[in-house]
Amino acid sequence: MISIFDYIQKYPRRAKQLLGISYDQFTDLVNYAKNSHEEEQLKLEQKKVRIHRRGGGRKELLSIPEQVCLCLFYLRQIPTFEVLGIMFGISKTLSNDTFHYWRKILRKILPSSLIEQVENKEGDLLIIQEILTNFKLLVDSVEQPIDRPSDNEEQKKFFSGKKKQHTIKNQIVSLPEGKDIIDVTVGSPGPTADIKLFREQQTKFDEKQEFTGDKAYQGGNNITTPHKKKRKQQLNEQQKEENKALSSKRIFVEHLIRIVKIFQVASQRFRLNADVYNEIVLLVCGLVRLRIGTFVLPNSAIN
C-alpha cells in the first residue's frame, strides 16, 4: 500500500485535499519546522547522561517530512492512531507520539492570529491596533461537540441547549472579506453567550475599533448588528435591505470558519485529551492563515 507521503509526492496537487495546505506550503513548512526540531533535539541532547556514543540507538522509521505529513494528515482527517500508524507503516504508539511531538513544534511557528503574531512586540501591537481602526472587523462564533464530561456539575457547564449536546465555543475576529484572522478566542463552554465572549475579546482592541456581527451581539458597544423583528411587528423594506447588505458583508467570516472546519479535528467531536484542545484549535487557525496566504514563513528559515 502506498503511503500518504509517497502519494502526495507523486500527486502534489492532491496535497491540499489530504493535508489542508498546498504542496509548496507543505514543503516550506517542513523546511521551517526543521530548525525548531533541531533546537528541541539540541536541548534534549544537553540534558542526556550519555552512555553510548552519539549516533547510536534505534534509527527513525520516518523522515522529518513524513513525520510532519503524519501530523497534518491527522489534523485534516482525524483517523484513529491505529489506522494512522498503518497508513505510515509504524505502530499505533509511535504514530501517537509523532503527532504530539510535531503539533507542539508547528504550534510554536504558526501564529493563530495577527494579534498573536505581534503581541510580544509592544510597538508593533500598538501600530496594528491603530491600523485596524480603519476597518470594520467581522466577528462570529462556532461550537464544537466534545465528549460528555464525567463530572455532573462539569457536564452541566458544557451542555448546549442550542446544539443539544456538550460543546466548546470558539470565536473568531477577521478582516473584512475574511482576508485574515485578527484574533481568536477558544475553549469557552458552549452555553457562554456570544456577547460575553465579544466583550472580553474587545479589550484587545483600540476603544474606537468597530465590528460587525449577527443578532447574538446586539447590545454590544461599537458593533453593528442586524435589525431584529419585534414581537407582533414586521421589519420595513429599508430594514430588510439593510439586513441584507449587512449579511453580504458578514458572510466572509463564516467562510473563514468553514475553512477552519475543513480540518476535521476542529469540526468533528473532539477525541483527544481536553487539555490539548486550545492548542490544537489555535494550531489549526495558524494552518488556515498559511493556507490562505496571510501568514508567510520567513525566507531566512527556508532552505
Rank of each mutant, 00 (worst) to 15 (best):
I86W: 13
K232M: 00
H52G: 04
E237D: 15
E177P: 02
L197V: 08
N35V: 11
T133C: 03
N221M: 09
Y217L: 09
G286D: 13
F270V: 12
V173T: 10
S248G: 11
K162D: 15
T133V: 05
T225W: 01
I64N: 04
K230T: 11
P12I: 11
V184L: 06
G85E: 10
K204T: 05
K59L: 13
K261M: 03
G220Q: 05
K249R: 15
F73Y: 11
R107F: 09
I128V: 14
K16C: 13
G220E: 05
L70E: 02
I251E: 00
K244L: 15
L18I: 08
K48T: 12
S22Y: 12
K156R: 15
L132R: 01
W102M: 05
E40C: 09
K92C: 00
I78P: 02
Y7Q: 04
Q9S: 14
N31V: 09
I146L: 06
M87F: 07
I90M: 08
L44I: 11
G220R: 03
L114K: 02
G293C: 15
K249S: 10
E254K: 00
F270D: 00
N222Y: 06
I128F: 06
D124H: 01
F270G: 03
R271N: 12
K240F: 13
D151S: 12
L297Y: 12
D6K: 12
L297N: 04
R258Q: 08
Q41S: 08
K163I: 08
S91P: 00
D124Y: 02
G161E: 10
P145I: 08
G190Q: 09
N96I: 06
S188I: 14
H166L: 12
R258A: 06
I4P: 00
L29H: 06
I64Q: 11
N221W: 14
I181Q: 02
S141M: 01
R148T: 12
I78N: 12
K47W: 10
Q77I: 14
Q17W: 15
N221P: 02
V260Y: 05
P65S: 12
A33R: 07
S3L: 10
E116H: 06
T225Q: 06
N170Q: 08
S141A: 13
K163D: 10
M1C: 09
T224G: 08
L114V: 07
V139M: 07
L137E: 05
L72P: 04
P65A: 14
S247E: 10
L282D: 00
L70R: 06
K104S: 02
E154T: 15
I146G: 05
N152E: 15
V68Q: 07
I168W: 09
V296G: 03
R231F: 04
A193Q: 14
V30M: 01
T212K: 05
T294K: 09
I280Q: 03
I280A: 01
S247T: 08
Q144I: 08
R231K: 06
T225R: 02
L282P: 00
I51Q: 04
S188F: 14
I131K: 02
G286S: 07
G293D: 03
I280K: 05
E210Q: 09
V276H: 07
R13A: 13
G187V: 11
Q234E: 12
Q238A: 02
D183R: 03
E122W: 04
R14W: 15
E200A: 11
